[in-house]
Amino acid sequence: MKDSRSLSNAAFALLAVLLLISGWQLIVSITDVPRYILPSPEAVLAALVRYSSLLWSHGLTTGLEVVLGFISGTLLGIATALTLAAWSPVRKLVLPLLLASQTIPIFAIAPILMLWLGYGLASKVVMATLIIYFPIASTCYDGLRQTPTAWTDLGQTLGASNAQQLFRIRFPAALPSLCSGLRMAATAAPIGAVIGEWVGSSHGLGYLMLQANGRMQTDLMFAALFILIVIAVLLYQGVDWLCRWLVPWQSLSEH
């Protein structure tokens, strides 16, 4: 039953994509809009084939930035949440700072990151890290704070130490909450990497889009955008799979 349901879900997703492409083709056909404003789906497909090696090479760079940023942001976020949950003096000191730091638009500090870290991979990885750090830290911390009393009571009567309570009971109990943060992060990390590339880079899909824009190669821009969507969807699916594996009890109760 579960298989047939996921099959029909996939069928609906495919149908939605087909409808979108048909609508797009319809607009192009009816309005006869110039191809440098809106290329037809066919032209974008042709660009995907023609520039495939170029797209592959730039896509790899962006993909690497996204994945590295995702991993480092996740580790940093989890470490922060655990620290906040474990030490109340740190919590009192750091929590207000952390909240205040969220009023700074990440995009606005991108130029500073370029200045400090250069035009290479590092500045983009840091951008992606920064953009997902807070959602991960806050969802994980929320989860750590909201352990059901029944579980902490039991841990206490079983003689668990504070560290055991944190790592063996509260952290696993926080996984469902952390997973919703991870899913959010999966969609936000590509944004961070591309913004980084727009501000200053010599490689990557964001760089390619800027170059194509300058040359009115709108079909190539759309092709690069398509690759970016593929990266984001793959990351999301990977994270979703990871979360189902980590928290099987939650995906079961959803059905």
Partner: peptide, 11 residues
């Protein structure tokens, strides 16, 4: 200790 909720750890 035993409570009303089974409090079994799902992981």
């Amino acid at each position: 200790w035993m409570a009303q909720q089974d409090a079994l750890f799902p992981w």
